[in-house]
Design a protein around this nucleic acid. Structure first.
Lengths: 336, 336
DNA sequence: CGGTCAGGCTGAAACGATTTAGGGGTACGC
DNA sequence: GCGTACCCCTAAATCGTTTCAGCCTGACCG
């Protein structure tokens, strides 16, 4: 593979000059600049990023570790992050932990190996063990979709407690008294918070926490939603409404409900979370709690970029919290 | 950041010994091995991938360039590729061209800068201009979802002509004589091939090519599907069935159809393509042409890995073509 | 005409790893 | 006692960049 040395030799100039043509062309006379550029073109020279990175000490890549690439919500977050990164001349390396803390640790160490400029992470593990190693290495990071004490680092999240309360309040107001909540593992901050929101709405309404049946699933995906749906059908007393911790679960539930021959919302009202694009196109359009996914990605990337920038000295950790919004569609409409 | 030199100094051994402990531990005495490992742990040393890569001349990363990360089909392909890569000790860097040849060129040059081990690409541009640069650099590549003359390189694809024919035949057999085809830009091989399949089915049935109304969209996403749906509603003579070049279009179309107060399949039958997970959960479960997405990703990664392996000399380019499969669901069921 | 200065270029020193030639030991056989 | 073989380790070369100190040249000024 052709290196900068080959270009220099062919053009009859020194290494340094070629490098300057590439990185600081204003330092080179127009004549040599043109000559070198022509040779680069001729030889098809492409600088080696690893050599540059080795010399510079840091890469031009941001690491993004998401819980589930199969969830359009995270795809949208990734898009936002890419957008902001591009504006700063950086790239994003997207990885998928699949909610597995071991995979998470694995990818985080990959990020350190790559000496990424910064990391955006939706933590799979509330314990924070994984992220400790990180702090030691001094890699700037931002927690996405999870609040963090401001002293430790930046975070961008959505108020999931409010989100959970919004959904639950909506179902209570529609007159449902027998509600189920299909939730993921409580290790996930999102799940814990949304559950807390459910409790809060119940308390407000003067109801006991036990008024809601909680079904737990291991993964927040469509298949788990179907499973939970099947379990739901088997309950001695079937609830009249279900709040799902995300839209994938809700879509899976929807399938199970139809398979059982029930109608939505007449026999069962459903509310999801995330408002992914497919929620509106579902068998019965899904009521959902919308999160500004793209905006979350953009903000997180901007924060981590700011932390690595020239004025990093003056950087103080921030905690950005967006507000969720209830989008009511047919799946929870009363009186039909 | 702590380097191998720091570890060597602290452990009182030479650089080479530390390197050997990491890469060829059997060459080092058990005693020093333990010592060095302890120091590595103590200092939190993580090898710099860029330094290693610079020395080794190639990275341990595969580049994957997809048309649209918002399409679950490609997410599944990426998952498959990651699976196969992991088995070979490699990572996958997933990038999104968004069907834009300029973005594509940009990412391909990124791949070369990174000196990736190999590239998997779903080309956005049929002209092949972008991929030429590639061949010159000698980076092994595999075309995904697009056939390639075997002389030029490997490819993994699905027989889209057959797929298009399957869908069309299905609609014809159900008695539809007035069919529309919502297709993407013909620069995309997938779109061109599926269209060819449509033509073939028409010919078989003794119909003229003009029996099918073709609506063209620029992007294969839900929003474009909605737009095309709106256009469809405005046609002087509304067709009784629509074949969409992918499921995202079909889902968007479905929304437009409902918004117009029509029923599926009674007023309009719909067939999609890809059989993404959301197709089964759609407003009306979508009939679709299934492609083995995961398998495509696995195969493509394995091919490119084989090409870069030790026995690369004996490698001859392969062309793997999977067969699609029609999955009939309610959206195209006749007689209801 | 000598001095100063700036512009444009060169050459060499890093960056952090891998790899290889070779150097001390120790054990063994003659 | 000497040669040989083997094991474990060290030291140095190398990968492809960027950057920095310094050199040369010509222009400008006094």
């Amino acid at each position: 593979m052709v290196s900068i040395k080959d270009v220099a030799r062919r053009a009859g100039v020194s290494l340094g000059t070629v490098s300057n043509v590439i990185n600081r062309p204003e330092l080179v006379s127009a004549q040599k600049r043109a000559l070198v550029r022509a040779v680069i073109e001729e030889l098809g020279y492409v600088p080696s990023e690893s050599a540059r990175q080795l010399r510079m000490g840091q890469s031009r890549i941001l690491g993004l570790l998401v819980l589930d690439m199969g969830n359009p919500f995270f795809v949208e977050v990734a898009r936002g992050a890419e957008h902001a990164a591009r504006a700063a001349g950086l790239r994003v390396m997207v990885c998928n932990s699949g909610q597995d803390p071991r995979e998470e640790a694995d990818y985080l160490s990959l990020f350190v190996e790559q000496r990424v400029r910064g990391v955006l992470i939706t933590p799979a593990d509330i314990s924070g063990v994984n992220h400790n190693g990180f702090v030691n290495h001094g890699v700037p990071f931002v927690f996405v979709d999870r609040v963090l004490p401001a002293a430790e680092g930046c975070s961008v999240s959505v108020d999931d407690v409010t989100g959970g309360a919004l959904a639950t309040r909506h179902l209570l107001e529609a007159g449902h008294t027998d509600i189920a909540f299909i939730n993921g593992p409580s290790q996930l901050a999102q799940c814990a918070d949304r559950h807390e929101g459910v409790r809060r709405a119940l308390t407000e309404a003067g109801l006991a926490e036990s008024a809601v049946t909680v079904l737990r699933v291991d993964h927040l995906d469509v298949a788990s939603g179907r499973d939970a749906g099947a379990r739901l059908m088997g309950l001695p007393r079937r609830p009249s409404a279900v709040f799902c911790a995300n839209d994938l679960l809700a879509l899976g539930l929807l399938q199970a409900v139809f398979a059982a021959g029930l109608r939505v919302p007449e026999d069962l009202a459903i509310v999801g979370y995330d408002d992914i694009e497919f929620a509106a196109a579902a068998a019965v359009p899904l009521t959902s709690v919308r999160q500004p996914a793209w905006q979350i990605g953009v903000t997180a990337a901007e924060l981590v970029i700011a932390e690595t920038g020239d004025d990093a000295g003056s950087h103080s950790h921030q905690r950005v919290v967006f507000q969720p919004e209830l989008v009511v569609r047919r799946s929870s409409m009363p009186g039909r």
